[in-house]
Each structure stands twice: as C-alpha cells, then as structure tokens.
Amino acid sequence: MQPSLPTLAADNLACRRGDRLLFRRLSFRLEAGAACHVTGANGAGKTTLIRALAGLTTPYAGAVMREGALALLDERTGLDPDLPLGRALAFWFGLDTAPDTGTMIARLRLDALAEVPVRYLSTGQKKRAALARVLGQGAGVWLLDEPLSGLDTDSQGLVMELVREHCADGGIALIASHQPLDLPGMTSFAIEDFAPALEDLAEQDEDA
C-alpha cells in the first residue's frame, strides 16, 4: 500500500489544553503492522494527543515523527451535512482516488444510505461513514479517536476486523478509546501515567 514502511513515533511529547499541562515525557515508537491502544478517562488528553500526532496542533514540547500518509477518525466526519451521503463521500474518494469504493461501502453497510442527507444519519451511521472515508484514503497510519463510540455490537466487531486487516497489511493504528480492545499483538498505555506529578506543576509555576 505505501511505498515506504509507515512509522509513527513520539519523542518526549508534552501537550497542554489552555493553561493546563495534560501529559509530558510521552515517548513511543510504532513500526509497520503495530496497533496501540491509548486509554484514559474523559478529559485526560487522548484527543489532544491524537491532534498533536496528526500535526494539527503544535505540541508544548517534544516532537512527532511520522512516515507515510495519515488518516484521522474523530467525532467530526468532514462530510457535508446537506449532501446525500453518497455524494459527500464521493468528494473525499475523488480527492484520495480511492479504488473499489463499492465493496467498501457495502462492507460498512452504507449502500442503503447513499441518498440520505448526512445530517439525517444517526451517530453510529455517521461514524461508519467517517470510517469509509478513512478506508478510502488508503493511508499507512490510522489515528482513531473513540472509533467504537455510538456503534452497535456488530459494527464494533466490524471496526476491529478492519483494524486487524489494516495492521496485517503493514499499517499502523493508534486507537484512543476508554473501551477494552482486543487486537493481536497490541500494545497499550494509559495517558494518565504521563500526567504531570505535583513537583512538575510547581516547576511549571516557577517558569510562568
């Protein structure tokens, strides 16, 4: 899929939201085929981490290194709410020159929804639509922020199956979720383990 093998690594990463330091000294390295589960309570900084890894925000300290294209799934679909689902997806498929979109749409059970405007879709249907967008991108690195939320049991199983296939194909998946995941060879870390200790906060106050 990718000419060069995808990698994703964080080096001594620290991120803030507003004035609050969420985590620091976070380092990891994911090679081709690796899956990683980031756990943490709501507000612990999972989404902040994912946005920093995606390069959408600048981390407070540290660096992100990435090889290969990147696909992001979060609570925002990127699909025009006024357009029928088929046409909204077609825009991204066109940009990404996605092959074989028909089978993909059928697999995510979206074929019956092609004529329905995106704003009428349920939470779970929107999530599946966003997944179709991610699949169509054919990117080596997947960043999935709560991919299972809002999905029924069948769809949750389908998502895990897709991630397994992606990793077996040499892709990387980093999944932030507070739900337990079951993937072969998956590593995991809790974002709370990197939350600043009290002495760090004191240091930070001195700096300020």
């Binding site: 679909t77 990127g78 990404d96």
Partner: peptide
C-alpha cells in the same frame, strides 16, 4: 471548521 473539513484537507 466544526465539520473538521479543513483538518481533513490538512492531513492530505
């Protein structure tokens, strides 16, 4: 911005 549309373009 609310749709995440610009974010997705940025990733590309």
């Amino acid at each position: 911005i609310d749709l995440g549309f610009f974010d997705q373009l940025r990733l590309r």
